[in-house]
Structures are given as C-alpha cells and as structure tokens.
Amino acid sequence: MDAAIEQYAPTETHNDTPTVSLSLPYSIHPSCLHMQVRSGSKAKNLVQFAIRKLAPSDQNSAHIEQITWNAFGDGISKAIACAEMMKRRSTVDFYEYVQIGYKRIEQIWQPVNLDVELDTLKVNKDIPAICILLSKIPLPNLTAGEN
C-alpha cells in the first residue's frame, strides 16, 4: 500500500462548487453577502471589507442584512475568528446560525512512471466545512418548531 502510493502523483483537483456554501435551513435574504475564507486570507482585510459593506457610506449601495462566512479545511479557524471579530467590532447585535458539514473534493491521481501499466485514480475527499450566518433580521428558532 505504501509502495503503491509512490507510483502516483496528484495532478488536478476538481472543486465542483468552489463558492456555494453549505445549505442552510433558512431562506437567505437577497442582499446577503457571502464571504469565502481561505487559510491564506488576512482576517483583517476580510473583516474590514465586510464591515464597510455592512455600513455603507453612500446611499446608493444596497443595504446588507445578512453575512455568511464560509470556509473548509484549514480556513475554518480563520472563518470563526472573522465572525467573532465582526461581532465584537460592530455595534449591531447579530442573530447567528452555524452549519457544519462535509465538502467533497475530487482529485485525479496520475501514475508517475509511464512504463508500468497503471490506471488513473479518482480520489474523493470529504473535508469538514463551516458556514456561519450572521443576520440582523431575527432568525426563526428551529428547535422550538420541531417539538
């Protein structure tokens, strides 16, 4: 098994839905701002951008009521940090909902050595992902409705 993996090298990664967040149980306001957090992005820049969008200076831009912070894999801790920073820094009280789930990533592994006859492998990876919804509009209580 260990010897076999050396015969392969990952070539391309298929990211079916690079931007779409996890499905939330709420209907999302049309003005919702979707933030994609990667492990390399600077939390400061993201939060500054989001806060500027939330409190627009000119009247023409649309008023934003909801924000989602989406991340998978390494970016998860950064997304939570961003959401927490946002809550701490803005004066508005947010309603919050957090959804976690798996995000599937497809990877194609090609054989390194062309002399040996090997098939191309398709690898499916399930990576933990998170979606944090911060809303100025009150969210209906899900647990109360089910009882």
Partner: peptide, 20 residues
C-alpha cells in the same frame, strides 16, 4: 468539526453548533 460529523454519521444525531 470532523469528530462531530463522524459522530453524526454513526448515530444520526442532531447538531447544534455555537461559536465563541
């Protein structure tokens, strides 16, 4: 998160997530 999701797969429980 991975642990909670694996636990959900095994037990089919409901998850309620909070961040702080």
């Amino acid at each position: 998160i991975n642990l909670a999701l694996q636990f959900q797969v095994k037990t089919n429980c409901q998850l309620n997530t909070k961040i702080a």
